[in-house]
Nucleic acid binder design. Structure first.
Lengths: 345, 345
DNA sequence: GTGAAAGCGCTAACAC
DNA sequence: GTGTTAGCGCTTTCAC
């Protein structure tokens, strides 16, 4: 089945020109006589010649390929950003390849290594070590090493000197959520998150404490629920815990829409009405928020800007200010899952 | 910032061995004395040496990389399959890179070309021309050309002699949906799909006609709605049309869960109760079906087998029977969105 | 067990 | 404009 791969030498011989001429036609670097160009074009067509990117890559540095790592393609947040990055990269003549790491450090490391071996022009990293609240010295050095080999940008806050970070302002996001709920009259507010080790979660939690304290609102440990996962099931389970509380909060914020959807489902099972008995909201404002019933109020982001900025840094538009952190703006979209509490204070 | 890339020659010189020896250590092809191995290992560590996959690829044929093309990563169907493929490939020492084509023929072609240039071991193609009911001679030749260069497998029925197809049995899927609805007592059934040009849709439609005819049930053109898209909005719009019908069907089947979710949302706006006034179901049985309220009855597939089979063909486990089509089994999951019609016949 | 040397397929000077 | 030639960084015979 496999046929011998045809090379520019084969084409050159048959066309009666030199390999260099074929190369010139391929790259368009210099002008070639119309006659020869025509002849070679025909042969390329005839043999369905596909140049070998590896041979080319050996002499040319740029591959016009960006590698992107995400912990979970099935999560709307990640696949939305990826999709937009693809689009943005396309307009610039780049393509972006996605690798799924399943939030597994080993796979993340291997994937990164593979991308480096393939000499991609840049890597965009989401999840994993980068998302952790505390970055070890080892990780820092590792990232620096990678940054020395290709452009790097992370989809969260970058503590790395040579890696750009494009990130959400988690404190501002939390403010938006709280402003909304407080304006509706809530003062007993819960929070459901996957784990405190993630930096975004840490910031949101800190901000929440600050705000509630400042407002003089109660802040109970039992209203803080760690689901251990970002997936639907985590939300369902958390809803059970909240429903079982002798003193429930009047509103709950979930770390993402998926968890919020899970909570919604859990509350329905437990006959807790949303937003009647309890207001509920999430973050990410994904399509998902339109599919649930009631639809989910959510703090979303400027995904378009997110993808665009990531790609800009990846292709080197801002080569002078690597190591910088760019904030992506967020906005609240009010939908049906939030309302005034039954017994306003 | 960019440092000179270090090569096996640099390592060899410093270690006082030949480049060949370094290469042997890298590939593990032959035994090398422990002493030299040790020394080289240290240097690899010291310089964070990353071998150049392009140089290697020039002499070695296999890259242990599979390329996958999907029309829309944001669609649960595709990202679920991709995710499982990643997992399956990982256990076999392969990695799979994803490219999003946006169902755009031009991007599909370019993406495919890029994968071929990069000499991936195999490509898994979803969407685009492959999904169309009628494959042109040109497409056929093009696919044959690609199949000559690397293993190819498509995520739908393969009309290509040298390309394996891993596909859903659309007729069986439709049978399952109809069996369920008919058993509940429905005989006036509608169908919402994106467009008739897709082969899966064509088969489903044909099967539906056959079955309804055989049962002697009515089959009205106005109960067949073409949304033009697979996205949520298409479903919302279709719901509006159905709600406006003077004679509504008692049950509606949507081509996928996303459309079904859109329909659900549209029906809610129009005060059509599901499943009270109308039963609704979809295909794919994605996570989404658990997030809506009511939860969505859906015909799902053995995604695990789907991903596994795709990868098996991609890595060449069944090299003898390329060109074959493998069917993935489907199963109905009854949830809340279907019930007995208000006025059973 | 190890080194020398050829070659993978392309690009980019460098001559002409 | 076009051909010649020297690499790019690795793997792999082939000797020893």
């Amino acid at each position: 089945m496999k046929m011998k791969n045809i090379t520019i030498y084969d084409l050159a011989k048959e066309a009666g020109v030199s390999p260099a001429t074929v190369s010139r036609i391929l790259t368009g670097s210099t002008t070639v006589s119309e006659e020869k160009r025509q002849k070679v074009r025909e042969l390329i067509e005839k043999y369905d010649f596909v140049p070998n990117a590896m041979a080319r890559g050996l002499t040319v540095s740029a591959s016009r390929t960006i590698g992107m790592l995400v912990p979970d393609v099935m999560n709307p947040y990640y696949n939305t950003v990826f999709s937009i990055c693809c689009d943005e990269a396309y307009t610039r003549g780049y393509s972006v390849v996605l690798l799924n790491t399943f939030a597994d450090p080993a796979r993340e490391k291997e994937s990164l290594a593979k991308l480096l071996e393939q000499r991609v022009d840049a890597v965009i990293v989401f999840g994993g070590k980068v998302d952790l609240a505390s970055v070890g010295k080892e990780d820092l050095e590792n990232m620096e090493m990678i940054a020395q080999r290709c452009r790097t940008v992370v989809g969260s806050f970058s503590p790395y000197p040579h890696t750009a970070g494009v990130c959400l302002d988690h404190r501002a996001c939390m403010d938006m959520a709280l402003d909304h709920l407080i304006a509706l009259g809530h003062r007993e507010i819960g929070f459901v998150y996957a784990g405190p080790q993630y930096i975004g979660t840490k910031w949101k939690l800190e901000r929440m404490k600050e705000r509630l304290e400042a407002e003089g609102f109660p802040f109970r440990e039992e209203w803080l629920i760690e689901s251990g996962t970002y997936r639907l099931e985590g939300g369902v389970e958390a809803a059970g815990k909240i429903a079982g509380l002798r003193h429930r909060p009047t509103a709950v914020i979930a770390l993402n829409d998926v968890l919020a959807a899970g909570l919604l489902r859990g509350f329905r099972e437990k006959k807790v009405e949303v937003p009647g008995d309890l207001s509920l909201m999430g973050f990410d404002n994904s399509k998902l928020t339109f599919m649930t019933s009631p639809t989910l109020t959510s703090v979303g982001y400027d995904y378009q800007a997110f993808g665009k900025t990531l790609v800009e840094y990846a292709v080197g538009d801002h080569a002078e200010d690597v190591g910088v952190n760019v904030m992506i703006s967020c906005m609240l979209e009010k939908k049906e899952s939030t309302g005034t509490p039954r017994t306003p204070h």
